[in-house]
Amino acid sequence: QGEKVEGLQAQALYPWRAKKDNHLNFNKNDVITVLEQQDMWWFGEVQGQKGWFPKSYVKLISG
């Protein structure tokens, strides 16, 4: 089970394309609201879409 977080935002360092239905698509420089953190994967929201993404593709910009 991941840790729920509030008020964290991350900026995409690279584009990410979903490999599964529960993954989040985003483009480089998109700002993602992080909702949950697990070891290597984070759950977040961007442009009304929610899903999992690899944390190595983003950098935290707040929180």
Rank of each mutant, 00 (worst) to 15 (best):
Q1W: 04
Q1C: 12
Q1K: 03
Q1E: 04
Q1V: 15
Q1T: 10
Q1G: 11
G2W: 09
G2K: 15
E3L: 06
E3G: 08
K4W: 11
K4L: 06
K4Y: 13
K4E: 10
V5K: 07
V5N: 03
V5C: 03
V5A: 13
E6N: 11
E6H: 03
E6L: 10
E6Y: 10
G7A: 15
G7V: 15
G7Q: 15
L8G: 12
L8W: 09
L8T: 13
Q9I: 08
Q9G: 05
Q9Y: 12
A10Y: 14
A10T: 01
A10Q: 02
Q11F: 13
Q11K: 09
Q11Y: 11
A12Q: 00
A12P: 00
L13M: 07
L13V: 15
L13E: 06
L13T: 07
L13D: 09
L13S: 04
Y14T: 08
Y14S: 07
Y14D: 10
Y14N: 12
Y14H: 10
P15N: 15
P15T: 12
P15W: 01
P15Y: 06
P15I: 09
W16L: 12
W16C: 09
W16V: 04
W16Y: 05
W16E: 00
R17V: 15
R17S: 12
R17I: 15
R17D: 08
R17C: 05
R17T: 10
A18R: 06
A18I: 07
A18C: 08
A18S: 12
A18W: 04
A18L: 06
A18V: 07
A18D: 10
K19R: 13
K19S: 14
K19I: 13
K19T: 14
K19Q: 15
K20F: 10
K20Q: 08
D21A: 13
D21I: 09
D21S: 11
D21V: 14
D21P: 13
D21F: 09
D21C: 08
D21Q: 15
N22G: 13
N22R: 09
N22H: 05
H23A: 06
H23V: 08
H23D: 12
H23R: 06
H23Q: 09
L24M: 02
L24N: 02
N25K: 15
N25L: 05
N25V: 07
N25R: 08
N25G: 11
F26M: 14
F26I: 11
F26G: 00
N27A: 10
N27T: 05
N27I: 14
N27R: 13
N27H: 02
K28Y: 06
K28P: 02
K28V: 06
K28T: 15
K28E: 08
N29I: 01
N29L: 06
N29F: 07
N29G: 13
N29W: 04
D30A: 08
D30S: 06
D30L: 01
V31W: 09
V31G: 03
I32D: 02
I32C: 00
I32W: 00
I32L: 07
I32A: 02
I32K: 00
T33L: 09
T33C: 08
T33M: 12
V34L: 04
V34Q: 00
V34G: 03
V34Y: 01
V34W: 03
L35R: 08
E36G: 11
E36P: 01
Q37K: 15
Q37N: 06
Q37G: 11
Q37R: 12
Q37T: 12
Q37C: 09
Q37H: 06
Q37S: 05
Q38A: 03
Q38W: 05
Q38L: 12
Q38T: 05
Q38D: 15
D39M: 07
D39C: 06
D39W: 02
D39T: 13
D39G: 13
D39F: 05
D39V: 05
D39I: 05
M40N: 15
M40I: 14
M40E: 14
W41R: 02
W41I: 01
W41K: 03
W41P: 00
W41G: 01
W41D: 06
W42D: 03
W42G: 01
W42C: 12
W42P: 02
F43T: 01
F43D: 00
F43H: 15
F43N: 03
F43M: 10
F43S: 03
G44L: 00
G44N: 00
G44S: 00
G44T: 02
E45A: 06
E45Q: 15
E45D: 07
E45F: 12
E45K: 07
E45L: 11
E45N: 04
V46Q: 06
V46S: 13
V46R: 10
V46A: 14
V46K: 12
Q47V: 10
Q47K: 14
Q47Y: 10
Q47A: 14
Q47E: 14
G48S: 09
G48M: 07
G48K: 12
G48A: 07
G48D: 12
Q49L: 09
Q49T: 05
Q49D: 03
Q49I: 07
K50V: 06
K50I: 07
K50M: 08
K50E: 12
G51E: 01
W52M: 01
W52A: 01
F53P: 02
F53G: 02
F53R: 00
P54G: 00
P54R: 01
P54F: 01
P54A: 02
P54H: 03
P54K: 04
P54E: 03
K55Q: 13
K55V: 01
K55G: 08
K55E: 04
K55L: 06
S56A: 09
S56W: 04
S56P: 05
Y57I: 05
Y57D: 04
V58I: 03
V58L: 01
V58S: 01
V58N: 02
V58Y: 00
V58M: 00
K59N: 10
K59E: 09
K59Y: 04
K59F: 04
K59M: 10
L60R: 10
L60Q: 14
L60N: 06
L60K: 10
L60W: 07
I61H: 03
I61Y: 07
I61F: 15
I61L: 13
I61V: 15
I61R: 09
S62N: 09
S62W: 11
S62F: 02
G63Q: 06
G63M: 14
G63D: 15
G63P: 13
G63W: 06
G63A: 12
